[in-house]
Design a protein around this nucleic acid. Sequence first.
DNA 1: GATGACTGTGGAACTGGTTCCAAACCTAAT
DNA 2: ATTAGGTTTGGAACCAGTTCCACAGTCATC
Lengths: 346, 346
Amino acid sequence: MEAVPQKTTIRDVARAAGVGVGTISRVLNSSSQVSRETRARVLKAIRRLGFRPNAQARRILRRRSETVCFLLSNRDFLHPFHARILQGVESYASGMKQHVLFAALHYSPRIPAEKIDLPHVLQEHGLIDGVILAGTIYPNVLRRIESIHMPYVALSNNVVGMEGKNQFDQVGFDDFSATFEVTRYLIGEGHKEIVFAADIYFPWFQRRFDGYRQAMRENKLKPVLVSARKAQSFVDFGQKVAQRILSRQPRPTAVVAGNDEIAYGLWLSLRRHAVKVPDEISLVGFDDREEAMLMDPPLSTIRVHKEEIGQTCMKMLLERLHNPNMAFSQRILPTEFVIRGTVRHL
Amino acid sequence: MEAVPQKTTIRDVARAAGVGVGTISRVLNSSSQVSRETRARVLKAIRRLGFRPNAQARRILRRRSETVCFLLSNRDFLHPFHARILQGVESYASGMKQHVLFAALHYSPRIPAEKIDLPHVLQEHGLIDGVILAGTIYPNVLRRIESIHMPYVALSNNVVGMEGKNQFDQVGFDDFSATFEVTRYLIGEGHKEIVFAADIYFPWFQRRFDGYRQAMRENKLKPVLVSARKAQSFVDFGQKVAQRILSRQPRPTAVVAGNDEIAYGLWLSLRRHAVKVPDEISLVGFDDREEAMLMDPPLSTIRVHKEEIGQTCMKMLLERLHNPNMAFSQRILPTEFVIRGTVRHL
DNA sequence: GATGACTGTGGAACTGGTTCCAAACCTAAT
DNA sequence: ATTAGGTTTGGAACCAGTTCCACAGTCATC
């Protein structure tokens, strides 16, 4: 029972149990070809010696590391959004006896693919079986990862500059439909002057804007995009944009914000101008981060099922590993409109 | 240059370069015993064959996986605080050519150590060299990890139920001094009726309370702890506790909150009671999470250098690995009082 | 010219598992 | 009793690296 400080090998166990090394291996991998008694004897010896098999040795033969890399690209810090995705990846992985390695990478979108200096774990061979790409993903890093023949799955919402190209596995959620639904809801609540607040330079905001615009047009309403320059952050963007919204004639009765942070900035600024939410202006966000629920009133927003996205990434990567030649697939997970306290019925 | 899909081994390279396998190994490990010309020839062959060494094979011999596990215990999700620490761990690790595996674990503090079902990565042998413990850490999990002879470093602030025991490596920050300094600062600003808001069941809040109390006593002021029962969350706790603070006679002029979330809840509630911060009540938090800066007015709080803590954890773990018999050490990193807009001079 | 010190190199032996083949063993049918 | 079919089992060969020992070559010294 007392664990001997390492170095018990399969051969020690074989000797102790009076069987061959092959038998130990068969017991460890529960490949049924072992008699009841022998198995029992081997298990007893394993326990007695405190034997723990060395996974490295197995991996050489299996040509699998049972490990995937969660690669966060071009982010200064592990944003709660990505942290939740990582968690989803880990939860699915652990159920499948797979491991998750965390790595970060910074690169310029303009650097040639072959010049990208990948993390050490990707430079060596055999350490990981595949990669899950999070953070902001530009085409060059995809090329780079393909150049080392490493299977990967990307978070499609964060891929920039590859619109419509589907030559890789991706998982994401439906930006367009989410804002489309939400805008229809606002219209259903009697709102007509609805503006959209975000910087559509980012493709995800563009898609969210498109959904909003579609709903507006279908109802013969004029879509309006409000934006600001030189914002320090999304919250700052929201604060800057508030001015423009309030000065519009007629004054908007509702705002669809590109994400929760913009909505928060907006809310701060509106409050400072003594404009009541939702009494005077209704507000919806996007993402449903923790803090949305804690605003006052709590923010109505679009929930993105981050854990589920992470799980699906992991699942898809495993499928790819088991079936390297299958066609590329893209999975779009639904979002959910969470009604809280920032939308008023007119 | 074109990468052959794997399976080039060191022997292929040896043949291609017309040298022995040992020489390839020597070139790879830059152990200087190779002549200029041979090294050049080998490097050329490596490049031509697109050879990437298999790290698994090396690891068997080295008896090192060059990987550590970041183990998050008993947390429902990867809280931003821990995400920052993970990031610090990763940044230091990548500089040292080490890898970081992310794993989560849930266990009861009351379950016997040997019954704790460790993540798969810890059950096998050779996958990781050591563990960094984050999340809430109870003594039984330390015993469990010791039982498999796995070196570890713990985030000391999150260890519960081992007060004063120092039989393991730990990194943390100084709860006591932080609130001590902050309380002295408030007193210096003319405050006398200062209360502390947190549930001191948690040892870290107890330590923060102790720092606060010490400063109060040194100035002949009466320390007051306000608390609430059955709070759903820290924010909720802050909201619940606001009532009690406002009903005190004389009314407190400043509150030291156990953390930023409590401070935020407090702030929400005060705002609803039309009590102005900092005009009527000053407020300081603890942690300096992202959102503190975004409150209105921005929250004065105690900054914890999370990345640095993560880096130090990783550094200490590597020291332990290189020197298994060194005495256990505990490193306490300083905090920093960040003055923003929620404290008023009386 | 012999001796010694040193550098550079080849390759066998090794790490700790898995895999596969052949042999041993056990039934049951001919 | 012999043969055929199946199940167990031992152990050599293997995976892809590292390590170490022996040997070759070079140069300086005696």
